[in-house]
Simulated assay, not measured.
Amino acid sequence: MCEKLPPKEHDTTFKFLFADKEEILLLVKDILHYTWADNIEEDTIELVKTNYVTQQFSQVEADVVAKAKLKDKEVYFYILIENQSKVKREMQQKILKYMISLWAEEIRKGVQILPAIIPIAVYNGIGERWNVSTDLMEAFDIFKDDVFRYRVVDIIELDVKKLLEREEDVLTPIVFYLEQAREDRSELIGRLLEVEKNLKKLSKKNVDRFLEWSYHIIRPRLAEEQKSEYDGIAKRVKQEGVEAMGEFISNVARLLDEAKTKDFLAGKFEATIEFAKRLIQKGFSDEEVAELTELEIEKVKELRKSMVN
Rank of each mutant, 00 (worst) to 15 (best):
F16Y: 10
T35Q: 10
V28M: 08
I31M: 12
T13C: 13
A62T: 03
L80C: 11
Q56V: 00
A19K: 15
H10K: 11
D43M: 01
T35H: 08
K71H: 10
A19S: 15
N39V: 05
F77K: 13
T35L: 06
N39A: 12
L17H: 14
I79W: 06
T35M: 02
K21G: 05
A37D: 09
D11K: 02
D11C: 01
Q59S: 12
D63K: 00
W36G: 06
K29R: 15
E42P: 06
F16I: 13
I31T: 04
Y76C: 11
A68S: 08
Q56W: 10
L25G: 08
E42S: 10
F16S: 15
V64G: 05
S58P: 00
F57V: 07
V48H: 00
L32Y: 05
N39G: 12
K71F: 09
T54V: 04
K49M: 07
H10V: 05
A66H: 02
K49H: 11
F18M: 05
Y34K: 10
D43P: 00
I24Q: 00
Q56Y: 12
N39C: 08
Q56G: 03
F16R: 14
L17V: 14
V60P: 01
A68V: 02
K69T: 07
N51M: 03
N39T: 12
L17I: 15
K71A: 15
E61P: 04
Y76V: 15
K49N: 09
V28E: 06
K71G: 11
E74I: 07
K21V: 04
K29V: 02
Y76H: 15
K69D: 04
E22M: 06
D72H: 09
D38H: 07
K71R: 13
I79C: 03
F77E: 11
T54P: 01
K29P: 04
T35E: 11
L32I: 03
L70Y: 13
E41R: 14
K69Y: 01
I24T: 00
V65L: 15
L70M: 12
I40F: 05
L26I: 10
D38G: 05
Y52A: 00
I45G: 01
E42Y: 07
K73R: 13
K15H: 00
H10L: 04
K21H: 10
